[in-house]
């Protein structure tokens, strides 16, 4: 036991714990961006998911095995609905993706619909009734080092791993994934071979958005776990950075999420150990690092090789004459 009571193990375990919502959120954004749609509404969609999950957990009776999946589904639907507004505006109406995404965050975010609904539903006075606790996988929790890090997490973490593997397989090993990447690279080409650009974009923006809902549920059902206004505290924006950080690849994005998770929990962990270091400045590190990475990869040629979808952010309009 004592071998697991060291700084490294604690930091790694909490990196995964706190990085889990980031994995969901950035994976969803990754899918949307792979189809060529930038969605700055992640933060708003996460809060919608968080509030929906909190409501289900607080108000629906029954065993955890029923309520918690239901809460996740509710979170996905709530966030997916938010994403569908963005999808309609940007894909069908070809509105500026940046402004539409920001509008979604303002509409749904900290001073918007999520807190409106929480107010109406009177959430946040008590912890949620059902939450995701850490589980002991195959009784391996006490295995030195890897036990607490890999085998003592919540179900949501394991779900995120499944999704990352599934998303990698989908993107690079299936025909639909090939089509998705084609739509993000060159919608003209995809259209000319009969791939429906708007169908792919709608699907991935909305489905990707629903992942942001799960990310929100991670906060209200796992990390906090109750409803607090604006509880995602800007993590939705980090998810956006992570997609770039991970070069639009699910596996690298997962690593990035854990790196961010480690940095944001590092200050607290160190303080608990009596090592004083400014938490504030430590939390700034991920943001600065993102900027540095962006500068390094901002050369267009290297960006393309690293996977940035060529048509990202550009509305598609079939050429006529």
């Amino acid at each position: 036991m004592s071998i697991n009571d060291n700084l490294f193990v604690i930091i790694m375990a909490s990196a995964i714990f706190y990085g889990t919502p980031l994995v969901f959120a950035s994976l969803g954004e990754l899918l949307a961006e792979r189809s060529g749609v930038l969605n700055l509404g992640v933060e708003g969609m996460m809060l919608l998911g968080a509030v929906a999950a909190a409501w289900v957990s607080t108000n629906v009776g029954g065993p955890a095995i029923v309520v918690l999946p239901l809460a996740i589904v509710a979170a996905m639907i709530a966030a997916g609905l938010g994403a569908s507004i963005h999808a309609f505006l940007t894909i069908t109406l070809r509105v500026n993706q940046i402004i539409s995404g920001l509008a979604l965050t303002i509409f749904a975010g900290a001073a918007g619909l999520s807190s409106y609904l929480a107010g109406i539903w009177q959430l946040g006075q008590t912890p949620v009734k059902q939450q995701f606790g850490k589980i002991d996988v195959f009784g391996l929790t006490d295995v030195p080092v890897v036990g607490p890090i890999l085998f003592h997490q919540t179900l949501l973490t394991y779900l995120s791993w499944v999704l990352v593997i599934a998303a990698s397989f989908y993107l690079f090993r299936t025909r639909a994934g090939l089509h998705l990447r084609a739509v993000g690279e060159s919608p003209q080409t995809a259209d000319s071979v009969g791939i429906s650009v708007s169908r792919y974009r709608y699907f991935h923006v909305i489905f990707g958005g629903s992942f942001a809902g799960i990310a929100g549920a991670c906060f209200s059902l796992m990390i906090v776990p109750t409803w607090v206004d604006g509880m995602t505290a800007g993590q939705g924006w980090i998810a956006l950075a992570l997609v770039i950080f991970g070069f639009w690849r699910p596996d690298l994005t997962l690593l990035g999420a854990y790196l961010f998770g480690a940095l944001s929990s590092l200050g607290l962990t160190l303080q608990a150990r009596g090592i004083h270091i400014s938490t504030a400045l430590l939390t700034a590190l991920p943001y600065v690092m993102t900027i540095v990475v962006l500068v390094v990869v901002s050369n267009t040629a290297s960006r393309r090789q690293l996977g940035a979808p060529a048509a990202l952010g550009k509305p598609y309009e079939r050429e006529e004459r």
Binding site: V95, F107, A111
Partner: peptide, 23 residues
């Protein structure tokens, strides 16, 4: 007074303007 209404209204105004402009 419902909290969050300000954001909801701001967001709705923006959505409607963006859509209205195109329509």
């Amino acid at each position: 007074f419902p909290s969050g209404l300000v954001g909801v209204l701001q967001g709705l105004i923006l959505f409607c303007t963006l859509g209205g402009e195109v329509l």
